[in-house]
């Protein structure tokens, strides 16, 4: 499974190197974007939803077919108040007896307590191109955040050092935010940096997710899967190198993006709406919301597509 994904990546990389970027528009015919259409759609997203911005990323990862200051789009610190995984588990629980807003917040804990479900799901799954390379790992070792990495037991735990008495700060003007998780729902809020790159092979945008816990410490990409619709979590969401940033990030695999966008465009056109290419990313982000339903990014913005009624 891992091998097949690697082979596919190698194949994709080679194709990307030897083929030129798309220059002719096939937006309505295939649901894909040319490079210049991606820039037009990105400029419009940044103008209408100003929490998004263009960035240039790592200089050594820069793609020559994109302007150096418009390599990818990013919006940072997007809240995710609930785990998509736990919502679905609650929904599936018999008769909906688990309340979403249960005072004890049992629903939150349920995701961590049900590793078996994931396992059985995995056993049934045949390896496929879209499979996750991490799925086998996650069933054999506990998933934890980076700071608690089990391989690094010999790292001195700074929390055990208590000689920080040279910091004496008694300041009545500092508002101390409660840090006990039970006190405050907000502390269960994760945040996400969401970025959109241009995938030259599939000629579509591609979404990348970087997750942080409630104290803004990096989440292992595996934990990000709790915030992805479980229909997609171990199939279309993969963990790969980001094309413009260091490190591994969770990404929604773009192999079906063109086809789905084509369907959305067809539906619009059958209603007599002539879709415009600069609105592509608004449509695209609405479609992404089915994959990451609890991450609250700017997709809800009203946009005018002509005579559309949504």
């Amino acid at each position: 499974m891992v091998l097949s994904q690697k082979l596919h990546e190698a194949f994709k990389g080679t194709v990307e190197r030897i083929t030129g970027p798309r220059t002719v528009s096939a937006f309505k015919e295939k649901g894909v974007l040319s490079v210049s259409e991606f820039i037009i759609a990105g400029d419009n997203l940044v103008a209408k939803c100003p929490t998004w911005s263009w960035e240039s990323g790592e200089p050594n990862k820069r793609k020559p077919y994109l302007p150096s200051d418009k390599q990818f789009l990013i919006t940072r610190n997007v809240p995710c108040l609930r785990r998509a995984a736990s919502i679905e588990e609650e929904y599936e629980a018999a008769g909906g007896e688990v309340l979403l807003d249960d005072e004890d917040n049992d629903g939150w804990l349920a995701t961590h307590g049900k590793p078996k479900e994931i396992k059985s799901d995995e056993d049934e799954n045949l390896p496929s191109m879209e499979s996750l390379e991490i799925s086998e790992k996650s069933s054999t070792k506990p998933v934890s955040s980076f700071k608690e990495d089990e391989d690094d037991e010999d790292i001195p735990d700074m929390a055990e050092f208590t000689e920080y008495d040279n910091i004496i700060e008694t300041d009545p003007s500092t508002y101390l935010v409660a840090h006990e998780p039970d006190d405050d729902n907000i502390l269960r809020t994760r945040t996400y940096d969401i970025s959109i790159s241009y995938d030259k092979y599939y000629q579509t945008p591609r979404v990348w997710l970087t997750g942080y816990d409630e104290s803004r410490m990096l989440l292992q990409p595996e934990l990000v899967l709790e915030d992805v619709s479980q229909d997609h979590a171990r199939k279309t969401v993969t963990i790969e190198d980001h094309p413009h940033l260091p490190g591994k990030h969770a990404s929604i695999h773009p192999c079906r993006h063109g086809a789905v966008m084509k369907k959305i465009i067809d539906v619009l056109m059958s209603r007599g709406v002539e879709p415009e290419v600069d609105k592509y990313l608004f449509l695209f982000l609405k479609f992404m919301a089915s994959v990451i339903p609890t991450i609250e990014y700017d997709y809800t913005m009203d946009f005018d597509l002509g005579s559309s009624s949504n």
Binding site: F146, D149, D152, M158, Y164, L176, S215
Partner: peptide, 16 residues
């Protein structure tokens, strides 16, 4: 503060 305490933070990036 780190989770309400006056201690430093630590992150391990060995995986990446």
């Amino acid at each position: 503060l780190n989770k309400g305490r006056k201690v430093p933070r630590c992150i391990s990036l060995a995986q990446s």
